[in-house]
Design a protein around this nucleic acid. Sequence first.
RNA 1: GGUCCAGUAACUCAGCGGUAGAGUAUCUGCCUUUUAAGCAGAGAGUCGAUGGUUCGAUCCCAUCCUGGAUCACCA
Length: 497
Amino acid sequence: MSDNQFIKLRKEKLAKIRALGIDPYPVESGRSHKIADLFEDRESWVERAESVTLAGRLVAMRRQGKLGFGNLEDDSGKIQLYVSKNETGEENYELFKLCDAGDFVEATGSPFFTNSGEYSLRCSRIRLLGKNIRPLPAVKERVEDGKTIRYDEFADIELRYRKRYLDLLLNPEHRKVFKLRSRIIREMRSYLNERDYMEVETPILQPLYGGANARPFVTHHNTLDVDLYLRIAVELYLKRLIVGGYERVYEIGKNFRNEGMDRTHNPEFTMLESYEAYSDLRGMMDLVEGMVKHLAKNVIGKDEYVYQGHKVNLMGEWRRAGMAELVQEKLGVDVLNESDEALIALCKKHELEIPPGSGKGKIIAVLFEHFVEHSLIQPTFVCDFPKEISPLAKAKPGNPLLADRFELIIAGGEFANAFSELNDPLDQRARLEAQAALRAMGDDEANVVDEDFLEALEYGMPPMGGQGIGVDRLVMLLTENDSIKEVILFPQMKPGI
RNA sequence: GGUCCAGUAACUCAGCGGUAGAGUAUCUGCCUUUUAAGCAGAGAGUCGAUGGUUCGAUCCCAUCCUGGAUCACCA
């Protein structure tokens, strides 16, 4: 971007500062206290009149002749600076006059109360730490009845996402969202660590991708001269680790799916997957429910959340119900015992598309997604998924059509997915080969056959439960944001501007 | 991908077929307790882009770009 009037002026100021023999970008900075420190027992600070040095960004300036006020902000808080020529001396006051909102400065002085009663720092010296040459958007705020009213808020959604640093700087409530995100993830880790899980890191660049139905991003390694895929899931690698003898592992990291983008999908997103030997689907329900309730209670401290226009109570008893049972509730059709023809006719009647190669299970899933999923508002474990669409899940004993799998649905959206993991190597091979057949029929999201994974299974894998939680969506729910872009610091945007 | 909405100064926005406006911000002057500081003055814009209609387009039309909402598709 070329220089505008503002930048030209500030570059001129830079030159003036340098002409005074002052380095506007010094190497050394130092502070004796953070701003929040001065707000503990203010009266005592004032009484002691101790000199302290603060450092931070100057976020506002009110200059009036031989004295001026500024607001200094660091990551702990904000305090008013009182700068008068009497106290700083001529030379230092000249520097202060060359400072702008947006500059980083060091302020030395002692706390006091102004005539109007505002707790401030009476400055004996101002030192420049980093000169700003592009003015920050002008946002003004006023405190009324303890509430902060902001004027001319930096609110353009596109700019907020593209220039996230400005969003964070100018909109404290957005800064708070990402702080909560960090706490949520930290608390997830400790929840699992306390349960004897081990955190691991597995490849992001994979020779084959697997563990989910999705199209991948492809890249190329020059030295090996091979194409590699960015992972769409970590499942198959974590299972290899269970084969290797660890009993409880998890990974929190980015997955990449080359699919559409909307309010709940970003091409790279954060997933938590965990696997636990000798557990099963029931164990995973307890784990997921326990963890989410723990986060709601300990990080946020609320029972009820407003999400996508719905009131969701996370602290109640979470329903566990079969997919077919839920469809039957809604449509009055006993889908498990109905003939394929009748189900196909039902789909046709509602103009629902059935992908080629679909069996009964897939058709039931289509009906579920169309008629039921959106209406599940309170947390619901939808169990007994059709085996046909669950190639990595163990079959449900007693019903060859079903798999021991659930998805957690909240406010009509998917939050987690879990199985009793399939550990029969022959069955697993047959299922992946069936996926390959679907792929041959044009389903480019079907799983690929991963021979190395199958070989690992052949060496023996214990029975286990595994689950994956979409971390971004969980953060959305807990921070009551309806767009995934509000909880990802740098969401994917088209190049532009 | 369909539909709808938006794009005007650094920020928030108004405007309208006749050469662009406000508040804040900025600059200059005054100002030693201000706090959305104040007072006086000034500068600042390719009106998202490209075509078309018109004597004349920021405004009307078309196409495109970017973003948002929504539906469809998709985990």
